[in-house]
Computed example of a mutant assay.
Amino acid sequence: MISPIRILLALTLLAPALFADELAEKIRIQNQNVVKAAAESLAGELPKRVDAHTRLIAIDPKGETLLYTFEIDAGPKSDEAVIAEGKERMGRNVTAGICATSRRFLESGITIAYRYVSAATGRELFRFDIDEKRCGYRK
């Protein structure tokens, strides 16, 4: 027979883990709801011109990720040329911008993703998923 003291000790040791899992699940669900509400709120303004070559065409909730889809009209440039010329530069700029403007989202566990597609071919050119670790302010 297992003594009541051993049962109590086992429950005491397991309780923090059980509560942590329950809390993590509640946070995950809350983040999904925040992402969905943000996407719904912003989607009514679309499509929206960003600059001479770029339009924001969609904002979608994907679990705990808020996915922005941009369309690039690069004129006569091939998709390969756009990728070669822009991916690294765009990645730095997008990361810096999101880290500067979306800290509260990121620190709560939400990821912001920017996806760029070709206006000519519909092909995905590049995608940047930014979370709090990538911004360097993880606790």
Score class of each variant (00 low, 15 high):
F19S: 04
F19M: 04
F19G: 03
F19P: 00
A20D: 09
A20W: 02
A20N: 05
A20G: 04
D21I: 01
D21W: 04
D21F: 04
E22S: 09
E22W: 03
E22G: 03
A24S: 12
E25C: 00
K26D: 07
K26T: 02
I27W: 04
I27C: 00
R28V: 02
R28H: 12
I29C: 00
I29E: 13
Q30W: 00
Q30T: 06
Q30Y: 03
Q30C: 00
N31W: 02
N31Q: 11
Q32Y: 01
Q32R: 14
Q32K: 06
Q32P: 01
N33Q: 15
N33C: 01
N33M: 06
V34C: 03
V34I: 15
V34Y: 09
V34T: 15
V34A: 13
V35F: 06
K36P: 00
K36W: 03
K36I: 02
A37P: 03
A38D: 12
E40A: 11
E40V: 03
S41W: 04
S41A: 14
S41G: 07
S41R: 14
L42C: 05
L42D: 08
L42T: 08
L42I: 11
L42G: 10
G44R: 09
G44F: 08
G44E: 09
E45K: 08
E45D: 15
E45Q: 15
L46Q: 11
L46H: 10
L46N: 10
P47E: 13
P47M: 07
K48T: 08
K48C: 05
K48M: 15
R49P: 06
R49W: 05
R49N: 11
